[in-house]
Design a binder for these strands. Structure first.
Length: 293
DNA sequence: AAAGGCGTCAACCGCGGTTCC
DNA sequence: GGGAACCGCGGTTGACGCCTT
């Protein structure tokens, strides 16, 4: 982890990523785009920091990376999102919160920045008004959860959302007859009770996470342990799956068993959730009537 | 027609995470 | 093991165009 001290002999504070006086800021010109594309086409990307100099650009490396990944990359898909893409974004956002990069990774040709902008300007308004303080359950992670592993967070989010939805449903029968009173958590519940959701609940380590979450009140989540978990839709144990996954990746070069396992388990969870029927009742709000705005 | 408001989106900023030495 | 370099992410900003008054 990079510390905030900076280089020896320099002032305290974060080191600037580039010389602010030397670099150009603001919109990119056609010439700059061409220089960047030409250079990357010929030489590929070595390091972003050195790229601007080598390409003859007066830009920060970071700016080059952003321009390339969000705009110039050849596989970028432009234009508005299709209804299928929108639905995927809705689904993933309800599960992941503002994890734009994760969401974008599931939409080929779309970038995190594009998804984020599209969400803020088009999709967010289609979601029914939420009850204050339960907003964006998965997005509003506490400091405690943020400091834990991704898989722990994920499991914690599942459980806290489920508990919240359960409570709301049992406490407030009005919700059931008023779609506008629904929160993400409420849509979450049917998912939780479906087959993949049950499979997730049965996973070996999830129970540990669930226990830790349940003892907390007011949906503030503090984890005591850092378990890993794996979801199986085939009945295989978590250990078995992890073993298989590890074996499958032996030719991939750099490989960290723990991080891979955690990432993979989140992926599997996502895959399961994305398998939920799109025409299900709990996803109807995703279809969003634009005229409602 | 002009001015102000609003929505959209490209780009920037700063922080956290990972990798390298 | 620890510091430095670099990358990636999410939040925010600002320019610009369209709409409303």
């Amino acid at each position: 982890m990079r510390k905030k001290g900076g280089r020896k002999g320099e002032k305290m504070g974060r080191m600037p990523c580039c010389d602010k006086g030397e670099v150009k800021k603001g919109p990119w010109s056609l010439e700059e785009d061409k220089l960047l594309v030409d250079y990357i086409t010929k030489n590929g990307i070595v390091t972003w920091r050195s790229l601007p100099k080598l390409a003859g650009l007066r830009r920060c490396g970071k700016s080059c990376r952003l321009r390339w990944t969000n705009y110039l990359r050849p596989d970028i898909k432009r234009g508005p999102l299709s209804s299928e893409e929108e639905q995927t974004v809705f689904q993933l956002h309800s599960l992941l919160g503002n994890k734009w990069a994760s969401i974008a990774s599931r939409l080929p040709g779309r970038t995190d920045n594009e998804i984020k902008n599209y969400w803020n300007s088009h999709l967010r308004k289609r979601i029914p008004k939420k009850v204050p303080n339960v907003q964006a359950n998965s997005a509003s992670e506490s400091v405690e959860t943020k400091s834990k592993s991704p898989s722990t967070n994920h499991a914690a989010e599942w459980e806290s959302a489920r508990v919240e939805a359960d409570a709301r449903m049992s406490m407030d029968p009005i919700i059931l007859s008023d779609p506008t009173a629904f929160t993400d958590c409420d849509y979450f519940l049917p998912a939780w009770n479906s087959e993949p959701g049950e499979s997730f609940q049965e996973s070996k380590d999830f129970n540990q996470v669930a226990c830790a979450v349940k003892v907390e009140s007011d949906s503030v989540v503090t984890m005591q342990a850092e378990p890993t978990f794996t979801v199986s839709s085939t009945g295989a144990s978590a250990d078995q799956i992890c073993k298989i996954e590890a074996e499958e990746t032996t030719n991939t070069g750099s490989y960290s068993p723990d991080s891979y396992k955690q990432e993979k388990s989140s992926d599997i969870t996502l895959d399961l959730l994305l398998d939920f029927p799109n025409d299900g009742e709990y996803l109807q709000y995703l279809q969003g009537d634009l005229n409602d705005n």
